Simulated assay, not measured.
Amino acid sequence: MKVLLPKVFGSSEIRQFFMTHGKTIQLKKKEIFAKKGIPSYSVGLVVSGGFKLIYKHGKKEWIKSFIFEDGLLGSLPSIFENQPIPYSIIAIEPSEVIVLTANEFKSKMEKENGYQNFLIQFLSKLYLKKEERVADFLLLEPEKRYKKFIQEYYFVLDRISQIDQAAYLGITNVALSRIKKRIFLGNP
């Protein structure tokens, strides 16, 4: 399930709010938008490019999700509770983002009904995606998770490296190569 700005009341206003009050920044591939362990004082709307949200422990890396055009970058606990962000947000390709301060974003979300409705729907979609992801890890074999990954990210698959795909699926790069070989053996 791709989490984009909902196409309901509030989404065009959110885009307009970012464009009016935000600042456009450019990030290079591998550049960090937000770093694990540090509170995030900004929220970003991805105009172009892509990002990965990663948990890292030593050299091991797990990818929480990918965010592309029209997606929001940030951490809600960090924005609303001023807590350190539990993951890093890193550009996987050259990207353009409109950035707002967390305070400005929070103020708009807390004070106006249309934006509150947007936030409720956005959080609902985020929650459902997280539930589905946990269930997939617990119930599906890696090959089925990969097939689901292809269905979800088919439109940007060529923009996500195989190493990042494997980290998202919770398997090694070698295991992913074997799965691809089995799946695509008869379907070039």
Rank of each mutant, 00 (worst) to 15 (best):
K2D: 10
K2G: 01
L5C: 04
L5A: 06
P6G: 08
P6K: 05
V8A: 12
V8P: 00
I14A: 11
F18Y: 01
T20I: 09
Q26L: 11
Q26Y: 14
E31C: 06
I32Q: 08
K35I: 09
I38G: 00
V43P: 04
G44K: 03
L45F: 09
V46W: 08
V47W: 02
F51L: 06
I54C: 11
Y55D: 07
Y55L: 11
H57Q: 14
K59Q: 12
K59C: 07
I63R: 04
E69M: 04
I79L: 10
I79S: 03
F80R: 02
E81Q: 15
P84V: 05
I85W: 02
P86N: 00
P86L: 00
I90D: 03
A91H: 05
A91I: 02
P94V: 03
E96D: 10
A102P: 05
A102M: 03
E112A: 04
E112T: 09
N113E: 14
Y115V: 06
Y115D: 07
N117S: 13
N117Y: 15
Q121A: 08
S124I: 11
L126K: 11
Y127P: 00
E131W: 01
E132Y: 09
E132H: 13
E132Q: 14
V134G: 00
P142S: 07
K144W: 07
I150H: 01
Q151C: 10
F155E: 15
F155C: 10
V156E: 09
V156K: 02
D158I: 00
D158P: 00
R159K: 11
I160A: 06
S161A: 06
D164Q: 06
Q165D: 03
L169R: 05
T172S: 15
N173Q: 15
V174H: 12
S177W: 04
I183D: 03
L185P: 00
L185M: 11
N187E: 14
P188W: 13
